[in-house]
């Protein structure tokens, strides 16, 4: 088992290099660079200043050479600085000679996106699990159909439209919830409880919107898993033993039905740091989605590469974790891997 994990970890290195090379090349396929943004179309900018900038960032050199520079920095885990005029560090904070700390761009955006995604994930699982179980138990009956229709409406509903409607309904008409932003303007002067409550109110609609679309997938997974398991012989055996129905369902059936979810959880790890551009723009949340989108529009290559690298590393780690967890949870898999 340990050998298997070690092998997988060692493979990650070359895989990451390959992924980053492909990302780098594709990124450069898009026309333009930092000097061709809409803002740069200004008769006051001189041609020399553009050339100066391109030279400074090595944009005048072949793509593969530029990749070399990037890789050289990356092996030292240096994500570099943004091409934008503020030139902030892409990943983590730096300190200048005077002791002023400049925070990293990903460092600031990641916790916000992570919090929203973890909350919405928790909401998805806590709602989708019971929905899936109820659906399976009442298969082909009214409540199963109702749940299926509901989760599919949630899946099919355009998130931005529903978000705007909720913002209008709860924020403007009834004045119950804040419309956008993460904190109220006077949040600094609140106590801890009031502050948390305030942040919670701001997050309510964004988390709800981001969870709604995910309900369908998870609840159907649980439902199908449950249905499969319920027809197994050991369930019949358990019932024949005279076990109470609750024990049969929640102890014997549900545990087995959860197995596929482990894979799903592992695969959703990289998704945790990916934000939605549309939701973040609507709710004025400075998260990862907006950061990435703006970086793409500006052709801010270090930021794009930074986010892609972290994303692909997390995908690989998530896959590995899912496999390990699966082996840990299911003896059949464990035996297969060891053998």
């Amino acid at each position: 088992m340990m050998q298997y994990i070690l092998k997988r970890v060692l493979w990650m290195g070359p895989l990451l290099v390959g992924i980053s090379l492909i990302s780098f090349l594709i990124m450069h396929l898009a026309p333009g660079d930092i000097t061709t943004t809409e803002a740069s179309f200004n008769p006051k900018t001189s041609q020399e200043s553009i050339q100066k900038l391109r030279k400074l960032y090595h944009l005048d050199e072949p793509v593969i050479v530029q990749y070399g520079y990037w890789l050289k920095r990356m092996v030292k885990l240096d994500f570099g600085n943004s091409f934008a005029s503020h030139q902030r560090p892409v990943f983590w904070q730096t300190k200048d000679a005077q002791g002023n700390i400049t925070k990293g761009m990903i460092q600031q955006a990641m916790p916000i996106t992570l919090m929203i995604n973890v909350l919405s994930m928790a909401l998805i699982f806590s709602v989708a699990l019971p929905l899936g179980v109820i659906s399976a138990l009442t298969h082909h009956r009214a409540s199963d159909r109702a749940i299926t229709i509901f989760v599919f409406i949630g899946f099919a509903m355009p998130g931005f439209w529903l978000a705007l409607m909720l913002m209008y309904w709860l924020g403007v008409l009834h004045n119950l919830l804040p419309i956008s932003g993460l904190h109220s303007l006077d949040a600094e002067r609140m106590g801890l409880i009031a502050w948390t409550l305030d942040a919670g109110k701001h997050l309510l609609i964004p988390v709800f919107i981001s969870a709604l679309g995910g309900l369908a997938g998870i609840s159907l997974f649980v439902k199908n898993g449950m249905l499969d398991v319920l027809h197994q012989d050991y369930i019949t055996t358990a019932r024949a033993k005279g076990l109470p129905e609750n024990t049969v369902i929640y102890r014997h059936a549900l545990r087995n039905a959860w197995l596929p979810l482990i894979t799903l959880l592992g695969l959703s790890i990289p998704g945790l740091i990916g934000g939605s551009v549309i939701a973040e723009s609507l709710f004025a949340i400075p998260g990862m989605g907006k950061l990435f989108y703006d970086a793409v529009l500006m052709r801010d290559f270090p930021v794009i590469m930074g986010i892609l690298t972290i994303g692909s590393a997390l995908t690989l780690v998530g896959n590995l974790l899912a496999d390990i967890a699966y082996a840990w949870a299911d003896p059949r898999v464990r035996r297969g891997v060891a053998g």
Partner: peptide, 11 residues
């Protein structure tokens, strides 16, 4: 306040 979406600004 930084509100990227004009529709949200209007709300």
């Amino acid at each position: 306040r930084i509100i990227p979406d004009p529709a949200a600004q209007f709300l």
